[in-house]
C-alpha cells in the first residue's frame, strides 16, 4: 500500500479545482439553506445553466467567454425567480421537490438529442476555452516532488477559482453581518414572526434564492473552465447532494464552512478512493477479489459518503468543528 501516493492525490484534490467547484456550490447553498432555511435541492441546475452559458456563448454565438459569464449570471438569477414564484409561499419541502425536479428538467432538456445541434446531447459541448487558456500567465508545473503536482493550467484554474471563493466569502460575510442578513436568519427561525415585524418575507427569500443561485453559477463556470467541456453528466442530482455534504461538514451558516467542508470532503473522498483502489489492485490484493473487485472498490467511497452524510446530520449537524450551541439549522 502506497500511502504517500494516496496522501499526495488527496492533498491535490483537496486544494485543487474540484474542491473549488464544490466550495462555490456550497457557498450558494449556505445562503439558501444555512442562513435562510431554504431547501434548494437543485443547485446542479444553477451550475448547469451557467456552465452551458459560457460554453455556448463561444460555440453557438462565437462571442467571448465574458459574455457567457454575464449570460450565465443572468440565467441563474432568472432560474431563481422562476423557481421562487411558485414555491416560496409554500412549505420548505415543496421548494425541495420543485428545485430537484427543475434541475432534472433542465438537465434532460439540455441532454436531449433533439437539441444536440446546440448542446451536443449526452456528449456535451467542448472547444470553447481557448480564450481562457490563452490568458494563462503560468508555465511549467507546481507541486511537491514525489507527492503531487499541478499543471500550469490547473494552477491557472485554481488561481481564478480560489479568488472567486475569496470574493464570495467576503460578500457572504458582509451581507450576513448586516441587518439584511439578520432578516434572513430570522426568516430561517420563524417567518411569521418576521412578517409580523413588517418585513416582506417573500422578497427576502427571493433575494436569497437569487444570490445563492449566482454563487451556484460561479461553480458552474468553474466546471466548464477546468474541464474544458460541459456535459449533462457533470450536473446530475447527486452533485447537489455532495455540495450539501460539503456544507454540513464545514458547518452551515458559517462564512468559511463551505471552504473547510470542501477541503475535508475532497481529502477524505480521494483518500478513501485511493485506499480501496490500491487494496483491490494487483495480483495479490489486500482485499480478496471474491469480496471486492476494483469496480466495487470504486463504489466504496460513495457508500461511505452516504453513511457519512447520515451520521453527520444525526450526530454533528453543526459541522465537524462547530459548536453545538451555535447550531444554526433545525436539527436538534
Amino acid at each position: 500500500m502506497d500511502f504517500v501516493a494516496i496522501l499526495g492525490s488527496a492533498i491535490q484534490q483537496a486544494l485543487g479545482p474540484t474542491a473549488i467547484i464544490y466550495c462555490l456550490a456550497a457557498i450558494g447553498l449556505n445562503v439558501h439553506f444555512g442562513y435562510t432555511g431554504l431547501l434548494n435541492f437543485g443547485q446542479a441546475g444553477f451550475m448547469m445553466v451557467a456552465g452551458y452559458a459560457i460554453a455556448c456563448a463561444v460555440t453557438i454565438f462565437a462571442s467571448s467567454l465574458w459574455l457567457g459569464v454575464l449570460v450565465g449570471l443572468v440565467l441563474a438569477a432568472l432560474l431563481a425567480l422562476a423557481l421562487g414564484v411558485p414555491t416560496l409561499r409554500l412549505r420548505a419541502d415543496y421548494l425541495a421537490i420543485v428545485t430537484i425536479a427543475s434541475a432534472e428538467i433542465i438537465r434532460q432538456t439540455i441532454a436531449a438529442a433533439s437539441f444536440s445541434e446546440y448542446f451536443g446531447g449526452q456528449d456535451g459541448v467542448t472547444d470553447f476555452i481557448a480564450g481562457f487558456r490563452d490568458a494563462n500567465p503560468y508555465s511549467g508545473s507546481v507541486g511537491i516532488p514525489g507527492l503531487f503536482r499541478w499543471s500550469a493550467f490547473d494552477i491557472w484554474v485554481m488561481t481564478v477559482g480560489w479568488l472567486l471563493v475569496a470574493i464570495s466569502c467576503l460578500i457572504v460575510f458582509l451581507l450576513m453581518r448586516s441587518p439584511w442578513g439578520r432578516v434572513l436568519k430570522s426568516i430561517r427561525e420563524d417567518e411569521n414572526a418576521v412578517r409580523s415585524l413588517g418585513k416582506n418575507v417573500y422578497a427576502y427569500k427571493m433575494q436569497a434564492l437569487v444570490i445563492g443561485g449566482i454563487f451556484g453559477a460561479l461553480a458552474g463556470f468553474m466546471v466548464s473552465l477546468r474541464s474544458a467541456a460541459v456535459g449533462p453528466s457533470f450536473f446530475a442530482t447527486d452533485v447537489t447532494f455532495f455540495a450539501y455534504t460539503v456544507l454540513l461538514i464545514g458547518g452551515a451558516a458559517r462564512v468559511f464552512g463551505p471552504v473547510v467542508g470542501a477541503i475535508i470532503f475532497w481529502f477524505l473522498i480521494t483518500a478513501l478512493g485511493g485506499f480501496f483502489s490500491q487494496a483491490t489492485a494487483g495480483s495479490d490484493p489486500l482485499i480478496p477479489e471474491a469480496i471486492m473487485d476494483p469496480t466495487q472498490a470504486s463504489l466504496m467511497r460513495f457508500i461511505f459518503l452516504g453513511l457519512g452524510l447520515m451520521l453527520l446530520m444525526i450526530f454533528r449537524p453543526q459541522g465537524i468543528f462547530g459548536d453545538r450551541r451555535e447550531l444554526a439549522i433545525d436539527a436538534r
Binding site: 436568519k185 430570522s186 427561525e189 420563524d190 414572526a193 409580523s196
Partner: peptide, 11 residues
Amino acid sequence: TFQLTKVLSRL
C-alpha cells in the same frame, strides 16, 4: 404577538 410565542431562537 402570537399565542404560541415566536421568538427567533438562534438569535
